[in-house]
Write a protein that binds this DNA or RNA. Structure first.
Lengths: 229, 229
DNA sequence: TGACATAGTGTCTTAAAGACATTATGTTTG
DNA sequence: CAAACATAATGTCTTTAAGACACTATGTCA
């Protein structure tokens, strides 16, 4: 067993599940594939690591997202690696999936190999022809987002820099698919010490709403308890 | 940009952080490296994926652990991917780190390229010459284990098939580095419905202790709250 | 100006963990 | 053999943070 072994290398790719919430709907960024395999099908933005451009896989994810949308996510973390001999017709494939959040913005529809980027409501995914096992990866990602939302305020990254409690509440309710007590959210906002009270308020049909923003140095706090499921 | 690009491929490896608890000490399995790079240093068991032998990266992790120890972990999950141009002198490298648990057992010291496997107390790691960034990976892993122990009963995988509450309590206390109320643990054991009460008890210096075992079909339950830190 | 809408607070209830005394049941020892 | 001791297991009160929901605050609009 000692000595040099000849080992065929698997394909290694980095893909991202970029979520946003818009009009009370959870949406995911998909690109129409310009090339084989799965030409014409919708897939996750991603690609191969470029060891001259990327310092690490996080950079690969960011670079590919920027290429296809023109913007950078507010939040990015690793989801997991999916691998197997049959998930890519070109051969044994290993994909590192990332999970990312951004405030809603229109996609710059940057032309990269004529790939078209688009926000797709996750509820509409089953009607689409999707590439590889990307449907399952999105589902995994959705569950992770939901779980993290129960014990953190991660959904702030789906909002603009200044936001109201009402907006945050709506985004959280969309993600966890449950109503949430405003009181519970306010308690967490205060306890986390992650936010600053802006000196502005905005109109929203009734009493003016206080604007909040993330502190510059804020780290995402994990609470000791989950919201009840 | 369209068309075939020539992309240099990074090295892709799978490494595992296998923990056990023995004599109230958290230990990690390390192997003495028989080859370059870092020949003679201690490193995590792992290696390259073999696309003829492995259906996926989980199998790679299991295979490499079995090669070096002769046994299979009770629990295995992905930790995270670490990547960069400088972490391996051979070039840009991508490692998928796994995190695993097993009941303590003597290592079969299986001879694979004259590599020697050994349980190292995590507190003694800083005195050792370790390969690559494996020290940091172990530290990451330790934090993940600690965190998960606060909201699950994962440490049962560090115990033999039949175990007592006292044993489980000791293992948990070793991992979280805090005392734990026996009452709290018993409540969780009951609420989780993961365990069966054996018809045996064993002596432990005082009143006989009830033996428990994991139900055959048991899934690890995640509790809604953390133990207090 | 009064109805309405949304923002924000007060406070009681509830669920699960922490603290700790008490009971149970074995082994060891005088 | 009984008393001391050790560890197991339970009872129960306290504490903490979320849920429920009524109530107050303050804006817009008819």
């Amino acid at each position: 067993m000692a000595g040099q072994e000849i080992i065929k290398k698997p394909l290694f790719t980095v893909d991202s599940v970029l979520f946003t919430v818009h009009e009370d709907t959870l949406k995911v960024l998909m690109v129409k594939r310009a090339q084989q395999p799965f030409q014409g099908a919708w897939g996750l933005p991603g690609g191969f690591i470029d060891i001259d451009l990327d310092q690490n896989t996080d950079m690969t994810a960011r670079r590919k997202l920027a290429d296809k949308t023109g913007f950078t996510p507010n939040y990015l973390e690793q989801l997991q690696v999916i691998s197997g001999p049959d998930r890519d017709p070109r051969g044994f494939s290993v994909t590192l999936a990332y999970f990312a959040l951004v405030a809603h913005q229109s996609v710059a529809s940057h032309i990269d190999s004529v790939e078209m980027a688009c926000w797709i409501p996750v509820s509409k995914l089953k009607e689409l022809t999707t590439a590889f096992d990307h449907r399952q990866i999105i589902e995994l990602s959705r569950q992770r987002l939901k779980q993290k939302t129960l014990y953190s305020l991660l959904p702030v990254f789906c909002l603009p820099q200044k936001f109201t409690i009402g907006q945050l509440m709506a985004v959280i309710e969309t993600i966890i698919e449950k109503p949430l007590q405003r009181k519970s959210l306010m308690r967490r906002i205060e306890a986390s010490e992650m936010f600053e009270i802006s000196n502005e308020k905005i109109s929203s049909g009734g009493r003016l709403a206080q604007l909040y923003s993330l502190k510059l140095d804020a780290n995402i706090v994990n609470f000791e308890r989950n919201l009840s499921i």
